[in-house]
Amino acid sequence: MKVIAMIPARYAASRFPAKLLQDLAGKPVILRTYEAAVGTGLFDNVYVVTDSKLIFDTIEAAGGKAIMSIEEHECGSDRIAEAVTQMDVDIIVNVQGDEPFTDRESLAGVLEVFHQDPEAEIDLASLMTRITDPQEIENPNTVKVIVDHRNFALYFSRSPIPYPRATDSQAKYYKHKGIYAFRKRALMDFQRLPMLDLEATEKIEAIRYLEYGKKIKMVETQVSGIEIDTPEDLERAIKVWK
C-alpha cells in the first residue's frame, strides 16, 4: 500500500487565529507537526495542504512539502480530497495541524487496521482515548465517540455520550482524536456528498461518513497529546516541550 500523510492547515481559527504560526519552542506549531509526522517514518510522503501563503512559505522554507488549496473548503477532509485527486495513493492519513505531539505508535495502530482488513470492509480508521475528567466529558470542544463491540464508531457528539441515566452506570467515555486514515475512495466520496443535518448540527465532519453508511474503525490509544485550540493550550504545549 502507498501511504501518505496530509496535514490540512487553515490560517483562520475562530478560537485562536493564526494558531498554526504561533511559536512553539523556536518553531511554528505547523512546522513542529509536520516534522513529527515525517519523523514517524510511516509515510511515503508528508504534505501540508493550506489556504495560507504564510503557512505554505513556512513549510517550503524549512525544506518541507506544501500544497496550496485552489478552492475554499469548510473542513479538512474536503481540503485533502482536492489535493489528492490526481495522486496514486491507497491510504491517506489526515494529521491535524494543531497536534505537534503526534506519535508514531498511535499512527502505526491506525494503519495496522488496513493491513488486517483483507476484505476492505473498513473505509476509515481513527483514534480515541479514554477520558474520565467530568469537565472534559461535558466540554463541547471535546468530541466524544461511542463504538460497538468491534470498535466501529456508532456516533460522534459534542454532548456527553452515553448519557448517564443510570447513576450506577460503568460507562466509559472516549475522546475522538482528529487523526483519520482514509481509503482514497472513501475520501473522494466525502467530497461529492452534501452535508446532512446531523453533521451541520454538531459541526463534526466524521458524522458525514456515518450518515452515508461508511464504516469507521476506532483504535484506542493511551497517548492524549495536546491539541492547540486556545492560547492556554499553547502555554501547556510549551511547558511540555521544554
Rank of each mutant, 00 (worst) to 15 (best):
G63F: 02
R32W: 12
I59R: 00
V48L: 01
E60D: 10
Q96P: 14
T102F: 05
L42R: 09
I70A: 15
V48S: 03
I67W: 10
E99Q: 07
L124Q: 12
K27H: 08
V48D: 06
D123Q: 06
T50Y: 01
F43W: 01
V89W: 00
G41N: 07
D123Y: 02
D123I: 08
G64Y: 00
Q96Y: 08
G63E: 09
V110Y: 00
K53L: 14
V29W: 07
A25E: 14
D98Y: 02
E82S: 10
I80F: 00
S69H: 01
L42A: 09
Q116I: 00
V49G: 08
V93P: 12
D117H: 11
A108P: 11
T85L: 13
E82R: 08
E99R: 02
G97N: 02
K65R: 15
T129V: 15
V38F: 12
G76R: 03
F43S: 07
V49K: 03
I70M: 12
V113H: 07
T129D: 09
D117S: 06
D88P: 10
F56V: 01
D117W: 11
V48T: 06
D57W: 01
A83Q: 01
I59H: 02
R79M: 15
E82D: 11
D98G: 04
G97E: 04
I55M: 13
E99A: 04
M128Q: 05
R130M: 11
K53T: 14
D51N: 15
L127S: 14
F56N: 11
K27E: 15
V46T: 14
I122L: 05
F101T: 08
V93N: 10
T85E: 15
P118E: 03
T132E: 13
T50C: 06
S52W: 04
R104E: 14
G64V: 05
T102N: 11
A61W: 00
A37F: 02
G26L: 01
K27V: 07
